[in-house]
C-alpha cells in the first residue's frame, strides 16, 4: 500500500471516520464497506423513500448509490464530507428516477400513480379502524404536500427536517449557495404551512 495513502488516512481519520473507511476501501480493504453500509443504509433509504415515495424504488436506488460508492473507491479523495458525496449520489439518482417516472406517468395517463399507496405503513392498527383511516388521510395530506413541492425544495426540506443536515451541507448536496438553500427552505415551509394549515 503506498505511503501517501497511509498519510491521507491518518490526516482524515481525525476528522471523519467515514473518510477513513473510504480510504481503507480504496487501499483494498473490502471489509471497510460493511461499516459504511451499516451506518448510512437507513438514512439514505429514508431520504430516497421520501423523495420518490415508493419503498421498493427507494431501496433499489439506495443499492445503486452504494454500488456507485464502491465502484468509485479507487478515485475517492476525501475533499468533502463523505455524507455530502453519498447524498449527492442519492439525490442524483432520485431526480433521475422522478424525471423518468414523470415521462412514464405522462404515458400511463393521469389515473395511474407510481407512488406507494401508503397502506404498508400501518404502524399500529390496534386503536380503531376509524383512527387508522384518519391517520392515513393525514399522512396522505403530508405526502401530497411534500410531493407538490419542486424537486429541489423537496430535497431541501427532507434533508433539513428528516436528515437534520446543516444549511452549508445541504448547499453542497444541492450544488447551490447557502443563501439559495435558505431561500428554498423558507419558500418550501411557507407552501407547507399553507397546504397543511387545515390540519391544525
Amino acid at each position: 500500500m503506498p505511503n501517501r495513502v497511509f498519510k491521507d488516512m491518518a490526516a482524515v481519520a481525525a476528522i471523519e471516520p467515514d473518510a477513513e473507511l473510504m480510504l481503507r476501501l480504496k487501499a483494498g480493504d473490502s471489509a471497510s464497506f460493511a461499516p459504511l453500509l451499516a451506518r448510512h443504509r437507513a438514512p439514505v433509504i429514508h431520504f430516497l423513500y421520501r423523495m420518490v415515495q415508493n419503498q421498493a424504488v427507494a431501496e433499489e436506488l439506495a443499492q445503486e448509490a452504494f454500488l456507485r460508492v464502491y465502484r468509485a473507491r479507487e478515485s475517492y479523495e476525501p475533499t468533502a464530507k463523505f455524507t455530502t458525496w453519498l447524498f449527492r449520489i442519492a439525490l442524483h439518482l432520485a431526480l433521475n428516477h422522478l424525471r423518468d417516472a414523470r415521462g412514464e406517468g405522462a404515458r400511463q395517463g393521469p389515473g395511474e400513480r407510481l407512488e406507494d399507496s401508503g397502506e404498508r405503513e400501518m404502524p399500529d392498527p390496534a386503536p380503531t379502524i376509524e383512527q387508522w383511516l384518519l391517520d392515513q388521510a393525514r399522512l396522505e395530506e403530508v405526502r401530497g404536500a411534500i410531493r407538490a413541492l419542486s424537486e429541489k425544495q423537496r430535497a431541501a426540506v427532507i434533508l433539513h427536517k428528516y436528515q437534520e443536515v446543516e444549511y452549508s451541507q445541504i448547499a453542497r448536496i444541492l450544488g447551490c449557495s447557502e443563501s439559495a438553500v435558505k431561500s428554498l427552505l423558507f419558500r418550501a415551509y411557507e407552501t407547507l404551512r399553507l397546504r397543511l394549515a387545515h390540519m391544525a
Binding site: 433509504i45 429514508h46 423513500y49 421520501r50 419503498q55 404498508r120 405503513e121 404502524p123 391517520d135 393525514r138 399522512l139 395530506e141 403530508v142 405526502r143 411534500i146 426540506v157 427536517k161 428528516y162 407547507l192 397543511l196 390540519m199
Partner: peptide, 9 residues
C-alpha cells in the same frame, strides 16, 4: 409536527 408523522418504512 405534521411532517414528523410521516415515518419511513
Amino acid at each position: 409536527t405534521a411532517l414528523e408523522a410521516w415515518e419511513p418504512a
